[in-house]
Design a protein around this nucleic acid. Structure first.
Lengths: 212, 212
DNA sequence: CCGGTTCCGTGACAAATGTTACATGGCCCC
DNA sequence: GGGGCCATGTAACATTTGTCACGGAACCGG
C-alpha cells in the first residue's frame, strides 16, 4: 500500500512532525502481517525497524534445548528495541518475534533510523522512548521470574494476555502457556485447575474464561 | 581532579574524537568512589550519566519485600543505560547501583548527553553501544533465571565474580550470594558444599577459592 | 583467655515444581 | 457411528528449593 501523509498523521497519533511524516511516507514500507508469521528469528539479520500501528507481537527468548520463553508483547505504537540495536550494530537477532494477532506495521529502513535521529527531535525522542519501554518490559519480566512463584506468574500471564486481546475469553491451550512460561503442561494444568477451584477462571477446551 | 585532554585520551582508549574529549574535559566531572557506596537508589533522580573508567559497579533490582537481586555488573568503559533513559525521560531510578570495587568514573551532565548525540558520531555510537550491552546483560540474566537451576546459576555467578575481580579467591559470604540470587543462605551453603565435594571449589570462612 | 558475634554445616521437614504414566472426553473426518 | 487425534485431568512419585532449628567453628575485642 502507498503511504500518505494523512494516513500516517492519523495512525501515528500525530506524534511526529510534518517533515518527518513526509520522510516516513516516502521510505517507510506499510505491511500487514497475519497471526502466526515470524517477523524475525534468532540468527537472522534485520534491515529495518518495525513500528507497529495495530495488532500484537510476541517477543520470545530461546534457549539451547529448543525451549522458548515469552519476554513481552509489543502493541500499538511500539517499536522493537532489539531491532534498533541489531540494525545499528548489524548484529544477529537474539530473539524470536512472532505475530500474535494480525498486525499492521511500518518498516523503517535502518539507514533512515540513524539519519533521522539528528534531523528530527520527535524521532530521537521516539527512539529513546522505545529503549526505555523495552527496558521496563524486560525488568518487569525479570522481576516476575526472580521473585514470583509459578501460580502468580501464571495469573499475571493470563491477565496480560486478556488485556492484550481485549477480551475475557482466551483462546489458548495449556501446552502453549507452558511453553511461554518455560515449564511443563502438567504443571500448568494443575495450577489452572487450582485457580478454577478458587473461582478465578473457568476452563474449557482450548479456552480459558477470566472471571475476576 | 581537573580533567585534561591527555588523561582522557589515555583512559578512554582513544574511542572519542578530539573535539569531544575537549568537551568532556570541560564539563565532565571526575570522581573516585570507594567500595560500598551507592551511586543510585530506587526512587532517586539522576542528573548525570556515569562512564566507568576503572572498577566495578553492581546493578541490583529490588522487590517489594526488601529483597534485592543482582542484575549484572558494570566494568571498565561501561556506562549505565538506566541512567541514560532515566535522564532523558527524567524518570526515577528503578534499580540500585552500588560500587563493588573502588571505582573511577566521569559523570556527564544530562544535557550534554543529549547535545553531543548529534554533534559527535563517536558519542552517538557509544550511547547505542551502551544500550546494546545492557540489553545483552539483561537478556543473559533472564536466560539464567528462566532456564537454569540454582546450582548452575550459582556456578555461573561465581565464575562471573571471579572474572570481574580478576582472581580465583572470592571474598564473599554465603549470605551475600543468597541475596544476589534471591534465595536463602542455607540453600546456598548446601549447593556450595556439593560443589566442593565435586572438586569445583574450596570453601573457607568468608572466602571461596575457585579450582577449575 | 573469655564472651559475644558472625559465619557456616547440617538434619529434618515442608512446599513447589518436574516427570511418568495413563485415563477420559471432545472434536473432526470419513 | 467409529476411529483417530488432540487437549485435558490426575495420581504417584522424584527432584528441587525453602524453612526451621540447632550446634559448632572462627574471629574479634576487651
Amino acid at each position: 500500500m502507498k503511504l500518505t501523509n494523512e494516513f500516517l498523521q492519523e495512525r501515528l497519533n500525530g506524534q511526529f512532525e510534518h517533515l518527518l511524516l513526509d520522510e516516513i511516507a516516502k521510505t517507510g514500507q506499510y505491511k500487514r502481517v497475519s497471526a502466526g508469521s515470524y517477523l524475525i528469528r534468532p540468527g537472522e539479520y534485520i534491515r529495518s525497524v518495525p513500528i507497529i500501528l495495530h495488532g500484537s507481537v510476541k517477543i520470545m527468548r530461546p534457549d539451547k534445548e529448543g525451549r522458548e520463553a515469552l519476554l513481552y508483547y509489543l502493541g500499538g505504537m511500539d517499536a522493537c528495541a532489539m531491532s534498533l540495536t541489531c540494525c545499528l550494530g548489524s548484529k544477529q537477532s537474539e530473539i524470536t518475534a512472532v505475530v500474535e494477532e494480525d498486525t499492521e506495521l511500518i518498516a523503517i529502513p535502518v539507514d533512515k533510523v540513524d539519519e533521522w535521529m539528528c534531523r528530527f527531535s520527535t524521532w530521537k525522542q521516539f527512539v529513546f522512548q522505545t529503549y526505555q519501554k523495552r527496558f521496563d518490559n524486560l525488568l518487569a519480566t525479570v522481576d516476575e521470574v526472580i521473585f514470583q512463584k509459578l501460580d502468580e506468574r501464571l495469573l499475571a500471564y493470563l491477565h496480560k494476555k486478556a488485556q492484550s486481546c481485549g477480551c475475557r475469553v482466551l483462546s489458548i491451550t495449556h501446552e502453549e502457556i507452558a511453553q511461554d512460561l518455560a515449564t511443563s503442561r502438567e504443571v500448568i494444568s494443575r495450577l489452572l485447575k487450582q485457580l478454577e477451584r478458587n473461582g478465578v477462571l473457568k476452563l474449557m477446551r482450548n479456552k480459558i474464561e477470566m472471571l475476576s
